[in-house]
């Protein structure tokens, strides 16, 4: 089940304030996220209880909770993904005992090269900015590819997206309902066709309205459903769009 981004952010705020319960809940909720990131680095299936990479990743997530700063305007999950990747990479290098002096870990650089803490922080800032820009661009490219499966382009969305706030809120509500309903969403993915009749019955929105906003609903439902992959986009949308849709 998809955990809404704002739930993660809420638990994160409480965890940073010292709420152990919230921290545990957040770590538990993000275990699939950690597993997906670890599997991406290791290029294989990883399993809790068998693979140390997952433990390293979970520790890195815990570290990310402590180090995260909202002022950087980077989504927490994107930030956590960077930390997890960094730590797992360090672990793998140590384990293989290869190129220990060329480690990409900033901490290791600090330890082995003896650079100052300030330099390390500066390097980390640059690294974070560079990596977030790259990840954001890749994320948008992935999103464009996903939309292309439904024959939707950004230019088309700019043309058909409702300009009125209320009309947009109605379609965002429909998109969120579609993303939250596993069966309807699976039908959408299988047939590449919006289940208009069911959505109309479920949301009470007239089918003509759904037909007119078909592309927009699909685009936003895909974004919402895959919000863990499209963390930058979802994070950017979060305050105005998804909350407004409720």
């Amino acid at each position: 089940m998809v955990q809404p981004v704002e739930e993660v952010e809420k638990n994160l705020a409480r965890a940073k304030n010292g709420d152990r319960q919230a921290r545990e809940e957040l770590l538990a909720a993000c275990r699939p996220f950690v597993a997906r990131v670890a599997a991406g680095i290791c290029h294989r299936h990883v399993e809790w209880g068998h693979d140390d990479e997952l433990s390293v990743g979970l520790i890195a997530l815990d570290e990310a909770i402590d180090r995260y700063e909202k002022s950087r305007e980077v989504p927490f999950l994107a930030f956590a993904r960077l930390i997890i990747r960094s730590r797992i990479t360090d672990y793998l290098r140590r384990e293989s005992r290869l190129a220990a002096h060329q480690t990409a870990s900033l901490e290791v650089v600090q330890e082995e090269t003896g650079v100052s803490r300030a330099e390390a922080d500066l390097a980390w800032q640059e690294y974070l900015a560079r990596e977030t820009a790259r990840e954001r661009m890749e994320e948008i490219q992935d999103y464009a590819r996903l939309l292309a499966d439904f024959d939707i382009k950004f230019a088309g969305l700019a043309a058909c997206a409702p300009k009125h706030r209320d009309a947009r809120a109605v379609l965002l509500h429909v998109a969120r309902t579609l993303a939250g309903d596993g069966e309807l969403f699976n039908r959408l993915m299988a047939g590449k066709k919006l289940p208009i009749q069911e959505l109309s019955a479920l949301t009470g929105v007239h089918r003509k309205t759904l037909e007119r906003g078909r592309r927009y609903i699909i685009a936003m439902a895909l974004l919402w459903r895959h919000c863990r992959e499209f963390v930058y986009l979802c994070h950017y949308l979060k305050p105005g769009a998804f909350k407004g849709g409720d």
């Binding site: 948008i140 950004f154 230019a155 965002l172």
Partner: peptide, 22 residues
């Protein structure tokens, strides 16, 4: 908004309230 597509003289952005604008 966040740029999602760049054209020759314009770009498509995704605004925080979920609108796509050129």
């Amino acid at each position: 908004g966040m740029i999602v597509e760049i054209k020759q003289h314009t770009c498509i952005v995704l605004t925080p309230d979920g609108d796509f604008r050129e």
